[in-house]
Amino acid sequence: MYNTGRHVSLRLDKEHLVNISGGPMTYSHRLEEIRLHFGSEDGQGSEHLLNGQAFSGEVQLIHYNHELYTNYTEAAKSPNGLVIVSIFMKIAEASNSFLNRMLNRDTITRITYKNDAYLLTGLNIEEIYPETSSFITYEGSMTIPPCFETATWILMNKPVYLTRMQMHSLRLLSQNQPSQIFLSMSDNVRPVQPLNNRCIRTNINFSMQGKDCPNNRVQKLQYRVNEWLLK
C-alpha cells in the first residue's frame, strides 16, 4: 500500500494475479492497482455522481487488457486497454472487511506522507465487492493525466461501507513529505465531465427502453435511487 501524494494506492505483487472477464468485457483484464478517492467532507469525494449526488468516496479497481497488451503502460494508451471497476464508499457504523484491513489505525498511519509504503498480506480481493451483480457501464477516459479515452467503466450498483473514523484517518493523509507543509489528500477527484452523447449501458432491468442507441442501450439513462442509499 502506497501514498502517491494523490491517491492511496494498493498494488498486487506479481506472484498473485487477479483477472476479470465477462459482463461488458470482450477480453480478460488483469488487476493492476486499487485507488481510493475521498472528500474533505461527507457527501463529496466520488468521481461519479448518482442522481447528481456524490458519495463520500470511491474505490477504483484498475485492470489492463493482458490479452492484447504486455503491460499496463501500453494498454493505458491503446484501444480496449483498460477496465475500471468503480465502487462508491458510504459512511456507516461498520466497515467492509477489505477496507477494514486497509484503513485500520495500525495500517493507515504507516502511509501518512507522500512516498510512504507498507506491505499488506493476506488480502482477499473478492471482499471489496458489494453483494450485487448489477452495474452500469460506459466507454470513457482515465481520470488522471493524460486522461486517455481507453477505459471501460463499470459502476457497481451498491456501495461499500467504511466507518467515520476510517474516513477521518484518510483525511489525515498528506500530499506532501514530512519536511513540507501538511496538505490533506482529500478531494483528490477529477471534476465530473459532460456525457458527450456516450451510450450508458446496464444490466439493471428497467421497464422503459430508449431507442437512441443500438442494442436497446439507453443514451440518457436516469433512474430513481433508493433513499437509504443517499442518506
Rank of each mutant, 00 (worst) to 15 (best):
T26I: 13
L50F: 12
D106P: 09
L68G: 00
T70C: 01
H63A: 05
E32L: 00
L36M: 06
L61H: 02
Y72Q: 02
Q44N: 12
I111V: 14
K77T: 09
R110L: 15
R105P: 11
F55K: 06
S28G: 13
I20V: 14
T107G: 03
K14W: 06
S28H: 02
T109P: 00
E67W: 00
L12Y: 09
G22W: 08
S40D: 10
N65P: 07
S28P: 01
E47H: 12
A76S: 15
S95N: 04
A76W: 05
Q60C: 00
G23E: 04
R101S: 12
L50T: 10
I84H: 02
S56Q: 06
E74D: 11
E47K: 00
S40G: 14
R110T: 13
V85C: 00
K90T: 04
E74R: 03
R101E: 15
L49H: 10
H63K: 01
N51V: 01
H16G: 08
T107N: 15
A92F: 13
L68T: 00
L99R: 02
D42E: 15
R35L: 05
F88Q: 13
M102F: 14
S97P: 12
N104M: 10
H37G: 01
L99G: 07
G43V: 09
V85A: 03
N100G: 12
G39Q: 04
G57I: 05
H7K: 06
L61F: 03
N51H: 08
E47W: 00
H16V: 15
N51I: 05
G43P: 06
G23H: 06
S46W: 08
G57Y: 03
F98L: 12
G43N: 08
L49K: 11
E33V: 14
K77V: 11
R11F: 09
N71Y: 03
S56I: 07
S97N: 04
G45Q: 06
A76Y: 01
L68F: 02
E47R: 04
I62S: 01
E32R: 04
S21G: 07
S21C: 06
E93Y: 08
I108T: 02
L49T: 13
I91S: 08
E47V: 07
L99M: 15
S56Y: 08
M102S: 06
H16L: 11
L36P: 02
N104T: 10
L12E: 05
V83H: 00
G43E: 06
K90R: 14
L99W: 06
G22A: 09
I20F: 05
V59H: 03
E67I: 06
N80A: 12
N100C: 05
N80L: 13
S78A: 14
K14E: 14
M25V: 03
I91N: 07
P24N: 01
S46A: 14
E41G: 03
